[in-house]
Design a protein around this nucleic acid. Structure first.
Lengths: 219, 219
DNA sequence: TACAAACTTAGGTCGAGCCTAGAAGCATGT
DNA sequence: ACATGCTTCTAGGCTCGACCTAAGTTTGTA
């Protein structure tokens, strides 16, 4: 859950074992975090549970937070990817809205459908909340860079960054709202329904500002 | 610099001395941070320089980050205050734009005019960058609450939060841009000039979405 | 002058990150 | 096919900094 979906890079026995070790550590860590809370579990605890040395844990997951939030790449690239893959004639906003609504319909963890225990674990830990903020921040910066590239904006032009701020901001807000409802105990279906409604409103507001921004030329 | 401007709360000799101790610690800390970088200074170093015990430092500044960023209250309330003080007939956006441009004209540290050394100190320290992110985040939440109150939005209405996200987002972007230019070595006057121009563009974009949102009824 | 309530101090604990050495797999060459 | 050398991972120990607990000391007041 909430994994970046790392793929096996080489086919050796070594790589396979490495993959297993990594997953084992990640699973044990997640289990312990959910049981006791992120801040009440030490790296040593994780190492013991996974039957490896502390240093092994640190090697696979340089920061303790990565043990819980192993989704950085997917998350950070999410918005930029949606923009890059937009249809001819489709604006950045339209592409992002489409991708977002699809993710919500699929109860995708990457938009906040993490389950109540996981959400609880995150908001109970200042370190994890901070890490999540970093993710959002980086996601916005990647989106800004992509928008600049796609629109051919001159260096130093603020417009791509403004657009990225607005778009990523709304996504962050909807993410938080999804987590909030998850914590409130709502089931994923009713959350998806509510969030879909709210997303339409939010994107509607953005439409006034970004209606045709970064529209891909009709092919 | 970058101080929240704490005022003396009681008139005793004791309170005065306390105030002096606090300022002494803060000044020594800032000096050391600028000299060596935030992460290369320990709380013990600060205590030694200020001629007090380590615990005294911790008492006045519960988190190490607070030693460098002693501006939380002012910063966090900034946007909400501007909205609350808007003129009759003035929208939230217009009030925020007006307040922001005034702050830029005054080279106010709270919008990013901190001087290059200070800016360097911040961006060189992950801990301070994270803390700043927290400030921005909290500022947005306070703004959202104020907008909800001022517009009489029903509980659970997402609109105030959407507006707060957009408005606070643009402010954060301009803050970062000001710091970027500061680090690039530009002088405050030319920064203010450039940022004023960029701010007008950014607020113009927001105008399409939030033109009349939270407009105070004309008196 | 004595009491009460603070601010200050000291020491101790605990967890995260780093360095150095050792071991194991894997490719290459014969 | 097998042995050897090299690259990479694992391991344990260790240091260092942040925070907490509990006691000492000064100061303002009656």
């Amino acid at each position: 859950m909430y994994s970046g979906g790392m793929t096996v890079q080489s086919t050796g026995l070594r790589a396979l074992k490495k993959q297993l070790t990594r997953e084992n550590i990640s699973n044990q860590a997640t289990r312990l975090f959910l049981e006791r809370g992120f801040d009440n579990v030490t790296i040593a605890d994780v190492a013991a549970a996974a039957q490896v040395a502390k240093m092994t844990v640190t090697n696979y997951f340089p920061r303790k937070e990565d043990l819980a939030l192993d989704m950085r790449e997917v998350f950070v690239q999410q918005l930029a990817a949606a923009v890059r893959e937009r249809e001819p004639g489709e604006s950045a906003l339209a592409a992002l809205r489409r991708a977002y609504l699809a993710a919500v319909a699929g109860h995708d963890p990457v938009v906040g459908f993490s389950g109540p225990e996981f959400a609880r674990m995150i908001i109970d830990s200042p370190a994890l909340v901070a890490r999540l903020r970093e993710f959002h921040d980086e996601r916005e910066r990647v989106l800004a860079a992509t928008l600049a590239e796609e629109t051919g904006a001159p260096d130093g032009d603020l417009m791509p960054r403004v657009a990225a701020t607005l778009l990523a901001g709304v996504h962050r807000l909807l993410f938080e709202e999804t987590m909030r409802r998850t914590l409130a105990g709502d089931d994923n279906n009713s959350i998806a329904e509510a969030i879909t409604r709210e997303a339409r409103v939010a994107f509607e507001v953005l439409g006034a500002s970004l209606a045709d921004y970064a529209t891909r030329p009709a092919g």
